[in-house]
């Protein structure tokens, strides 16, 4: 993977608005954002109701993902361009998710919704309709998904990157500062994890920093070892996974989607707290 394959800019998107093989997909943390205006022709994906299993904490299964994409009118050979709010947090999460189920050509709009809006580019409230397709997914590619036990085993042996804010990492707060702080899990981080906040990989306007800046940012990682990125629920770490795996082309980088809401609730695992 490389920047040229994984990332497109707003001009590229504007030039491909009428391309029938390019499907724009908006994924927001605030799922109502789409209704207030979206890029022309974009379909909406709801990360909470459509990507999570209806019961229990896991993703929708292969068959449910196939039904979802078929219903959205996405074909296996379509170029899927994801974008969203919050500096593409959930769009990056969806990107990782599309990769998990083996979609061929998927890209992220650099800067997402924010850059698009700050540029003053057009949004529409027109409804998007796409004909239903018959989508076929691959089995989950677990080479990019880390689970609990693997993460515990990685302590002291693999790179663990905690991409939350410094205050979440130190244990001062338990959730991003735009959310209420009451949570079931304990505060802190996984021992031996280094803290590289996801936000350092992005400019103020939400675009990714250059490859040179990203390499400098992640120089604390031992590239001879595998890497597991985590955050609170796995969406910010998708952003970092994207920077490491898709932009810099690092091999063996996994996203631990259980992240702190799982790890911080486990009984008997080591936790470090700095405050």
């Amino acid at each position: 993977m490389s920047r040229e394959n994984a990332l497109v800019d707003a001009d590229w998107v504007e030039a491909h608005l009428d391309d029938p093989k390019v499907v724009l997909v908006e994924v927001d943390e605030d799922v109502s954002a789409y209704d207030t205006g979206h890029i022309s022709g974009a379909v909406r994906l709801d990360w909470k109701t459509e990507l999570q299993a209806p019961v229990g904490r896991d993703f929708v299964n292969k068959q449910q993902f196939e039904e979802l994409l078929s219903q959205k009118g996405i074909s296996n050979d379509d170029t899927v361009v994801l974008y969203g709010g919050n500096n593409n947090w959930f769009a990056a999460y969806a990107y990782w998710y599309f990769k998990l189920y083996g979609h061929g050509d998927v890209k992220l709009l650099d800067g997402g919704r924010k850059k698009w809006e700050l540029d003053g580019r057009a949004l529409t409230t027109d409804e998007t309709s796409r004909e239903k397709t018959s989508y076929t997914a691959q089995g989950q590619d677990t080479s990019i998904r880390a689970f609990r036990d693997e993460t515990i085993a990685a302590i002291g042996s693999k790179n663990l990157v905690d991409v939350r804010s410094p205050d979440e990492f130190s244990g001062k707060i338990s959730a991003p500062a735009h959310l209420p702080q009451e949570q079931a899990q304990v505060n802190g981080h996984i021992p031996t994890a280094i803290n590289v906040p996801w936000s350092k990989a992005a400019n103020d306007d939400g675009t990714f920093r250059s490859d040179e800046e990203l390499r400098e940012l992640y120089k604390g990682l031992d590239t001879s070892k595998d890497t597991i990125a985590y955050c609170r629920i796995g969406e910010r770490s998708s952003h970092t996974w994207f920077a490491l795996h898709e932009l810099l082309g690092e091999k063996n980088v996994k996203n631990y989607d259980g992240s702190w809401t799982e790890y911080g609730s486990l009984v008997g695992v080591p936790v470090e707290k700095d405050v």
């Binding site: 605030d30 709010g85 500096n87 410094p166 205050d167 991003p176 735009h178 906040p197």
Partner: peptide, 14 residues
């Protein structure tokens, strides 16, 4: 964007 005392990004809302 909410930046902490060191200028570190902490959160962002619309």
């Amino acid at each position: 964007r909410l930046l902490d005392a060191t200028g570190e990004f902490t959160a962002e809302v619309v």
